[in-house]
Structures are given as C-alpha cells and as structure tokens.
Design a protein around this nucleic acid. Structure first.
Lengths: 121, 121
DNA sequence: CGCTCGTACAACCGTATCGTTGTATCGGTG
DNA sequence: CACCGATACAACGATACGGTTGTACGAGCG
C-alpha cells in the first residue's frame, strides 16, 4: 500500500492535541476501556470518546473487545509513518548542508581570483 | 528553556496541513520570499502568507530580510523536537514489549522447565 | 430474561481554521 | 522624493473542532 501525502494530515492533526497525545501514551503500556481512559481527564466521557475516534480514524490506535469493554491499543506503525516524514526532512536538511559545504569549497578554490560575476535572479 | 507539553500542539497542528508541510520542505533547500512561495500553490498570496505565519508561530520556520524580500528558512530544531516525542513513544513501546517478554519468560519458567529467571534492569 | 455497564452517536454551541478580497505599510530603486 | 515591489493585516464567510448533554444500542452478569 502506498502512502499519499494527505495521509499525514489526520495523523499530525490527531497528535496536535495534548489529551490525544496522552491517550496515545497511555495506550502503549495499558489496556484501558474508554470509560477508564476518561477518568484521567477533566472532561466528559463523550469528549474522550471523540478523541479516541479521532485517533482511530488517524490509524494511531485500534479498539479491541475484551469482555464488555473495548480496550484501546496504540498502533506503532502510524507513529513511525509520522516519524519517517520528519526523518526525510532531516535528510533533506543534511543534504542541503552538504551542498553548502560544496559551495564553500568552490569559493575557497576561487580565492584570489577577481569576483566572478553572479547573475542572481 | 523547558519544553512543556502544550508546546507540541502548534508544531503538530502546523504539520497537519499538506501545503504547510510542502512549505517546510521547500524552505529547507531554497530561500524564497512569500511571493515566490505562493506561486507554487493554487491559492491566494494572502492564504500562503497565513500558512507561513502559522509555521512561524510554531517555530518551524523563520523569516529573514534579504533585499526587499523576506525569505523563509525552516528551523530544524522544531522538527527535531517533534521527532523526539515520537522517539519517546517508540521507546515506551519497546519497553512494553520487553515487559511482555518478561511475562512470557516467567510463564515458560512456571511450566516446570529449569529456565533461569532473568531479572532485567 | 432483564438489568446495567460500557459504548456509540446525534444535536447543539462557541471558537478556531482556511480560504477569500481589500487596504495599509514598509523599504529599495530610479 | 515618488513609485512600486513585497509583505502585512483586517474583515468576512464557510467549514471543522472541542466541548457539552441526552438518547439509543449491545453484550454480559445475575
């Protein structure tokens, strides 16, 4: 399956909320139902439920029946997809630094010569 | 300076938009003014300007005067802060896996085998 | 079988966001 | 200094978001 650019939108949007990030964190190491989750936050049960729904739509968590509850588990895959994008940016950055170094090296070679004419935009 | 949890909100929120992610990407390797940036996107100049403002508020980019333009540069630091959070989640995940392995080992040990129980970290 | 625990979902409200257009400002260039 | 290239900002409308309350459903327990 191919990851399209717009797939990142819901993931980052989901992570842009403090409460949702905390749910992700909790759901890594615990297996709580929505009701248990909700007890940690100063908002209604329904509000937490909505946050869980956002996270689920983003693929960051999944729900599984256990007894009469539906426990929430975070899906590492989605987190890694987000991280991969940040890694790409970092790689681009490093490549750019490399290019700058090249330029500097070039200039160093040109030292002493009379200003080469730059035709900048 | 200390990073508080709410500092992540604007960063992830800023990254939750396709156009803004593209601006971040461009601003890594190019030095364009807002007007030049805007030429790449199917929206008004003012809209792009707003996106840039969002990115700037999130600390993801900075603006610098060059001649009569204000060129946009992405700030790797902010990107790394976001990545660091994802790394933390991954570490939590791995720790959790470790804990599960322990449990499994314990059970295996309980099945009459002579397995030495490891008390990890 | 019926109750109730846990969850889902709809309706609503206030505010934020994303786009638009129009106007104001700021700094170089001629 | 006058002009114009480049940016900033205000106002507006449509839509999305984050919270609330209230109601409905479905699965286990007694």
């Amino acid at each position: 399956m191919q990851i399209t650019a717009s797939d990142f939108d819901p993931v980052f949007a989901a992570l842009a909320d403090h409460t949702r990030r905390d749910i992700v964190r909790r759901a890594i190491s615990a297996e709580e139902g929505i009701l248990e989750l909700a007890s940690h936050y100063p908002m209604s049960f329904a509000a937490v439920q909505k946050h869980v729904a956002v996270l689920e739509r983003a693929g960051l968590i999944t729900k599984h029946r256990i007894g009469r509850r539906r426990v929430v588990r975070t899906n590492l895959e989605a987190l890694l997809i987000a991280r991969r994008l940040l890694d790409q940016y970092e790689a681009l950055w490093l490549a750019q630094i490399g290019r700058m170094d090249e330029l500097i090296a070039e200039r160093a070679g040109a030292v002493g010569t009379v200003e080469t004419k730059e035709s900048k935009r």
